[in-house]
Design a binder for these strands. Structure first.
Lengths: 253, 253
DNA sequence: AACAACTGGGTACGACGTACGCAACTAGGA
DNA sequence: TCCTAGTTGCGTACGTCGTACCCAGTTGTT
């Protein structure tokens, strides 16, 4: 954010005096995304983006207050690729599955999303659209406060798992080894750990767990289904209403 | 990771030839944490850490292969502050609550943890200890593969919520405003959004939700209890076993 | 025609991580 | 005991980054 303004979304793109601008926020955003996709987030520097557009670094600051704001623009732009429907379908489970899988797809297509420490959920248009869909999907008798918890749980799960998936892939790529060679490389350390006998659960994970041997798709789906089962159990039934939060002071700015 | 080695944990601190080392990994790690706590992660640069120890930047590289490895060391060191018990208590709900709340406490004490999207959960000693405790706590008849999903759900929830909490605090601090003034500053944008009428769920959040008006502690606890309720519903009962994942190829390196 | 508001973009500053090199030091093998 | 190989602390240097500041040129409004 630019300091004196709340967020990039409150700063209009242009007024209408001087020369016609040669570029646009969208154009710059798309260039930045292209670079980040290809060479990583760090590669999307102001100089590099400008160079790709055929201009100088400082020109970009006529369009965007800072690089951080540009990252906000990139994030929201990419959320648009989720192509979330206008309204929930009425089947909450299908809708949440859609959110989870499209989030994963978008993060996999733009791995830098995982590296982007996403601070304040900046309220860009696409983020808002997504929020509407998500909360709307859960609008089946759940109190609004419980929706927060359930959606934080769902997106927390998704983001964590996908982040791990992506970072592992990055690790492999960075090492230049095949996954098998990489595994072999780290095997001595793991067996040393196991030999100490101090880590019985870790041992069971290494020996018994089937999940790590499944395809990433199947891993994701299996876990997601467990999460959705959990959410199902939290939906209100006549005899089991979801508990309301304790009353809060009704102060509103 | 230093490139030719798997991770910092596989690289021993020293061999025993030349002059006696003047510092140690722990010493450097603690200095870095001190700086990051006080002035943020970016402030913990190699130069600054070295200066605080009274030496030159390049000296640090005799102890740590790269700054990224130092970040791994910092993370694991700080996890030690969670003071996780040696073994689960037998009350899974109490144990998971403990993990959630101590994680939150540690992240709040070291806000840079939230900005650290650590690639690959690097298997440091404290991380391993925590894993043992967490998986051990859930070892009440749940298949090991389901534990992954449930724990990813829990830690995903915790990390997401605490990250938001911390980043909002940072935002406020960075703006130099009181939370009230900050709210007032962003009010026009929000009311503009509401006036469009395109965001009915967002409107309900702004108008009806009580959670945002509760103390951060209460917000966290309310959501955490919802998550734990969910986990409770996933625990096996005689008539409702947790589904195993589909079989995977039994290949093991 | 004059002016104010804007434009693209060059230069410069103070950071950053870290490759490289070197003198000083210390341990194991002779 | 002395050599020498390995390691120490650390200064210098390189290429990168975000962006503050400046200025000449362009344009809508008066």
């Amino acid at each position: 954010m630019s300091g004196d303004d709340v967020s990039i979304w409150a700063v209009p793109e242009r007024q209408g005096r001087g020369p016609r601008p040669a570029y646009s926020r969208t154009q710059i955003t798309e260039a930045a995304i292209r670079i980040a996709d290809a060479d990583g987030l760090d590669a999307a520097s102001m100089r590099r983006i400008a160079a790709d557009l055929g201009t100088g670094a400082m020109s970009l600051y006529r369009y965007v207050p800072s690089r951080d704001d540009l990252l906000d623009l990139m994030t929201d732009h990419v959320l648009g690729e989720m192509n979330v429907p206008d309204r929930p379908s009425g089947d909450w489970r299908a809708d949440l599955t859609l959110i989870a899988e499209r989030t994963r797809a978008v993060w996999r297509a733009h791995p830098w999303m995982a590296a982007l420490h996403r601070p304040r959920a900046s309220l860009g248009p696409q983020r808002l659209r997504l929020m509407e869909f998500a909360f709307g999907a859960l609008d089946v008798g759940v109190p609004i406060d419980a929706m927060f918890a359930l959606l934080d749980m769902l997106t927390g799960y998704v983001e964590r798992v996908v982040r791990d998936e992506i970072e592992w892939k990055r690790e492999i790529a960075h090492s230049g080894l095949t996954p098998e060679r990489w595994m072999a490389r780290s095997a001595p350390y793991v067996t040393d750990l196991l030999k100490t006998g101090d880590y019985p659960m870790f041992e069971r994970i290494v020996m018994d767990a089937q999940l790590p041997h499944m395809s990433p798709d199947d891993q994701f789906r299996y876990g997601l289904d467990r999460v959705l089962d959990c959410i199902a159990s939290a939906l209100p039934t006549p005899d089991h209403p979801t508990p309301d939060p304790p009353d809060a002071l009704p102060d509103r700015p």
